Simulated assay, not measured.
Amino acid sequence: MSSILKEFTRNQLALRNGQDKEEIWVAYEGVIYDVTESRLWRKGKHYEHWAGQDLTEELKDAPHTARVFQKFKAVGKLIV
């Protein structure tokens, strides 16, 4: 992962929900990942999770660990 990532606000992340813009992004622990190519994120939804959001808290209830994000390209940092 590159140490220099572009910063995005929550509003900018929210637009990458698979509907407002073509990109499908999610954030976890301050890093934004591009999940556009994942067949599990079609139309910006993955089970009960929606793209364009910070999924840090939601991951606690997921059946997988944070290692799942290693499959995806980090595209930015979430700023608060």
Rank of each mutant, 00 (worst) to 15 (best):
I24C: 02
Y47F: 13
K21W: 00
R10W: 11
T65Q: 11
V31I: 15
E57F: 08
K6E: 04
W41P: 05
D54S: 08
T56C: 07
I24S: 02
D54E: 11
I4R: 10
Y28R: 09
L40K: 07
H46N: 03
K60Y: 15
K43A: 06
G18C: 08
E23W: 09
L5P: 01
V31M: 10
L40G: 09
Y47D: 01
Y47S: 05
W50F: 11
A27G: 06
Y33M: 15
D34G: 03
G76K: 13
D54A: 07
K21E: 04
G30I: 13
G76N: 13
I4F: 14
E29F: 01
E48Q: 09
D54H: 09
V31Q: 07
E7C: 06
F72A: 14
T9A: 13
R10K: 02
V31A: 06
E48A: 14
K71A: 14
W50N: 01
K6H: 07
L55A: 00
D20W: 05
H64C: 09
G44F: 02
K60D: 12
T9Y: 14
L78N: 04
T65Y: 09
S2W: 04
W41L: 02
M1P: 10
L40I: 04
Q19A: 11
W41G: 05
D54P: 06
V31C: 02
G30V: 12
T56Y: 07
Y47V: 02
S2H: 10
D61A: 07
L40D: 07
K71H: 15
E48R: 15
D20Q: 02
H49R: 14
H46P: 05
S2Q: 09
F8S: 10
T65V: 11
L5M: 02
V35F: 00
N11G: 14
W41T: 01
N11E: 10
K60T: 10
H64L: 10
K43R: 10
E37V: 04
Q19W: 02
A14E: 00
Y33I: 08
S3C: 15
I4Y: 11
V31P: 03
A62K: 11
G44A: 06
W50I: 00
D20R: 00
D61Y: 07
L5D: 00
K43S: 05
K6C: 09
I4D: 13
